[in-house]
């Protein structure tokens, strides 16, 4: 059990050290990897898929993120795999943990200001090699932070989580299962909030019809959408060239 906890924490460290640029910190990747670590690939995939859709529009920008999706998906998947829970319990666990994880993340970000005082002093001396060395040192530092958050979480929280779920009545488990099915709606709404404009309504409706009435898989819809979008793009460029209102 300890070795799995160490490996899951190490993944949290790697995801943190590389940051969002590598996308290894997304729930889909984290939960799948943790599922493999705990020898339950299928459960990891299922939790990862559900959490990914639910957190789809969550992305930290300028240090302001609404939730820590990385720590929460790793922790929830580890708990589900080690205690034998299903997807709905993992989702129910991931939501509060994502808030707690976010508080920790903000504290670390605030604490990092302290290092920058030192970097400014080095810059005054023009010690470029020392500054580069310090930049490299951020990798083990971030790894350690990511590792510790999940490792301590599993060590200190595992028993509490087990005690919590032992007393859960059946109706609540059923309800959480239903919630797991509905929650992707929030993820999709988050993404829509970022890119939706009234003029896109026909495309939203067309995508819905392809999925709901024709049961077309997502990749097929994406390709069809890209084809329509490409045609519209070239028409607009054409209009611009001949001096329309563009």
């Amino acid at each position: 059990m300890l070795i799995q906890a160490i490996l899951a924490s190490a993944w949290s460290g790697i995801a943190r050290a590389l940051g969002n640029q590598a996308s290894l910190e997304r729930p889909l990747i984290c939960s799948t990897v943790v599922g493999i670590i705990y020898g339950n690939f299928g459960l990891g995939l299922a939790i990862g898929g559900t959490l990914e859709l639910m957190w789809m529009g969550v992305e930290g920008i300028g240090g302001a993120s609404p939730a820590d999706v990385t720590v929460s998906s790793i922790f929830a998947t580890a708990m589900a795999c080690s205690h034998g829970y299903g997807v709905s319990e993992a989702v129910a666990l991931a939501v509060p943990v994502s808030l707690l994880g976010n508080v920790i993340k903000q504290m670390v970000t605030s604490a990092n200001s302290f290092f920058h005082r030192r970097f400014e002093a080095l810059a005054e001396k023009g010690d470029i090699d020392a500054l580069c060395k310090w930049t490299l040192w951020s990798t083990p530092y971030n790894f350690a932070v990511g590792f510790l958050i999940v490792f301590l979480g599993i060590q200190l929280g595992s028993d509490a989580v087990q005690a919590l779920f032992e007393s859960v009545p059946a109706w609540l488990t059923t309800g959480l299962g239903k919630a797991g099915g509905i929650l992707p709606a929030v993820g999709f709404a988050m993404v829509l909030r970022m890119m939706y404009k009234a003029e896109y309504l026909p495309f939203l409706a067309a995508g819905f019809v392809l999925g709901a009435y024709l049961n077309m898989p997502i990749l097929g819809v994406a390709i069809l959408g890209a084809a329509v979008s490409a045609v519209l793009f070239s028409i607009r460029q054409q209009i611009k060239r001949v001096g329309g209102q563009g």
Partner: peptide, 23 residues
């Protein structure tokens, strides 16, 4: 370009709602 990619994105979200919200 942003406009063109957003159109693909919105279309995909429409299908995602139909495929993956279970209620």
């Amino acid at each position: 370009i942003t406009n063109a990619i957003s159109i693909v994105g919105v279309t995909v979200v429409g299908a995602l709602v139909a495929n993956w919200v279970r209620a």
